[in-house]
Structure formats: structure tokens, C-alpha cells
């Protein structure tokens, strides 16, 4: 007897939960019904990401590194499902390795990106990196999984919280990744992933006053308009590459804080 498969409902990922869109809308993409997030879903996600910021940025770097490593563990355990949502096992392997690579950066950033500064006077002066805040990511379409992971991991390991607009064309990889995130001890609200129509969501993400940074990796013709909208609160805006790996990807969403104190008895 042939067993009838239990199918998955592809939902949004907001605040550690998997809600449907409050609008009740879905899209048919890649042969599945996928939630079509509304502006209200986006605003909820930003609000929750902002609330989650204090905890995540306040966590020790060691802890953040372990959580990211745990994400790689969860991805390893779900290789099959992830592979089905992208180009295959090779891409999954690279995505997992990338998460492991970034996990190791958490407690090294301050040493590589920060500095002690020799000022001409009796002052102790140092510079440390800190997270920017809520980072909005317009995920690239290809490679569906590796591209998303390449844009998500850097702001995350730096201590930011993120709101991702998944690619219109390949949202399933984002939904699968959300399920890994949900079981990886990532605190609720630190990663939020919305599926739907980019054109409908991205302008509201770019213009949102509680979003501090913007990665427009997946934007094309709309990039200039999104950058313009981002200027309203002086967002840090990058157009990240879908397959890039370096500490400078992390630095794009780090602020540098310099502290002075007099030296004396």
C-alpha cells in the first residue's frame, strides 16, 4: 500500500513562531502554497526583532558563536530537506560550512576589527565593534540557500537581529532554513523570515524607522528606490554578494564605539 505523504504548510517565521500571514494570503511557488506576508506582518517582524535586540546583542560573543554553530548542526540534520529546496547537496554543504565559519568569528571580531588607539595625551582609548540594530535583508534568488545563509550569518554573528524577505522565486529554502533556526537555540525574534512578494514588502522594510541596516543583495531594478527610502533614518545599506565570505561582511553591520578615559593616579 502506498503511503500518503504528510505535506508541510509553508509559513512565516516571526518571533520564533510559525504564523500564517495575518492577511490569510498565500502564493503558489515551487509547487507549494507559501504564505504571502503583508505589510502588517513585516511591521510585526520589525517590532519583534527590535525587542529581541537587547538580549542578542547583550549575549556573550561565545554564546552567539555557539548558537550559530548549533544552527549548522541543525542544518546538517536536515540536509535532505534543505537539498530539495536548493540546487542540491553541494550547496547545502557549502551553506553549512559557511555558518560554521561565521560562528567562529563571534569572539574574534573585537580583536580583528577593534583597536587600542595611541592618542597623544594621558588617555586610555579603545575602539570596539557593536551591532547596528535591526538589519533588513532582501535575500538573493540564487543560490537560494547559500545566498540566504551568506547574507544572514554575518549580521547575526555580529549581534544584530534580522528581518529577511525571502526570494520570490525560491522561498522554500528560506522556510526550510527557518525551521533549522527555530531549533538552534536562536532566541525568538532574533531571526524573522517572511515569504511573499518582494515588491510588496521591500519598500516598507527599507523605509521602516526601526530598521537600522539594509542588505539589498536580492534587489535589482528597485535597488535605487530602496536606497532612497533607506536614507530617511540614515540606514547602513549594502548590496551584498550572494556568495561572499569575509569578516568585512560582518563589519558592514557593526558600529565602532570609541571610549576615552584619562590615565592618572
Amino acid at each position: 500500500m502506498r503511503r500518503v505523504q504528510v505535506r508541510k504548510t509553508h509559513k512565516l517565521f516571526i518571533g520564533g513562531a510559525f504564523p500564517r500571514s495575518e492577511s490569510g494570503r498565500t502564493l503558489v511557488v515551487e509547487g507549494a502554497n507559501v504564505a504571502r506576508a503583508s505589510r502588517k506582518d513585516l511591521r510585526d517582524a520589525v517590532r519583534i526583532a527590535r525587542q529581541a535586540g537587547a538580549g542578542w546583542s547583550g549575549a556573550t560573543a561565545y554564546n552567539r558563536g555557539q548558537v550559530l554553530y548549533r544552527l549548522a548542526e541543525m542544518m546538517e540534520a536536515r540536509r535532505g530537506a534543505l537539498a530539495a529546496a536548493c540546487r542540491g547537496k553541494d550547496e547545502v554543504d557549502r551553506a553549512i560550512d559557511r555558518v560554521v565559519w561565521y560562528a567562529g568569528w563571534a569572539d574574534k571580531l573585537a580583536q580583528v576589527i577593534g583597536s587600542a588607539n595611541a592618542v597623544a595625551g594621558p588617555y586610555f582609548n579603545f575602539t570596539v565593534p557593536e551591532p547596528t540594530g535591526v538589519v533588513g535583508i532582501v535575500a538573493p534568488a540564487e543560490p537560494a540557500l547559500l545566498g540566504l545563509v551568506s547574507r544572514l550569518a554575518p549580521p547575526l554573528v555580529g549581534g544584530n537581529t534580522v528581518v529577511v524577505i525571502a526570494s520570490d522565486a525560491h522561498p522554500i529554502a528560506a522556510v526550510e532554513l527557518a525551521e533549522c533556526v527555530a531549533t538552534a537555540d536562536v532566541p525568538p525574534g532574533v531571526v524573522n523570515i517572511l515569504t511573499g512578494l518582494r515588491g510588496e514588502l521591500a519598500p516598507w522594510l527599507a523605509g521602516h524607522m526601526d530598521v537600522a541596516g539594509l542588505d539589498l543583495a536580492g534587489a535589482d531594478g528597485d535597488a535605487a528606490e530602496l536606497e532612497r527610502l533607506g536614507a530617511e533614518n540614515v540606514k547602513r545599506i549594502v548590496r551584498g554578494k550572494a556568495d561572499e565570505q569575509s569578516p568585512y561582511e560582518i563589519a558592514a553591520f557593526l558600529e565602532l564605539k570609541t571610549v576615552w578615559h584619562p590615565v592618572g593616579f
Partner: peptide, 14 residues
């Protein structure tokens, strides 16, 4: 952030 001082500047200080 200036602690116990204020408005200090130096070319080596970001």
C-alpha cells in the same frame, strides 16, 4: 564615549 573627560580628539582615535 568620553568618560571623566569630554571633547577630546586625536588623529589615532576613530
Amino acid at each position: 564615549v568620553w568618560a571623566n573627560t569630554y571633547n577630546r580628539f586625536d588623529p589615532a582615535s576613530p
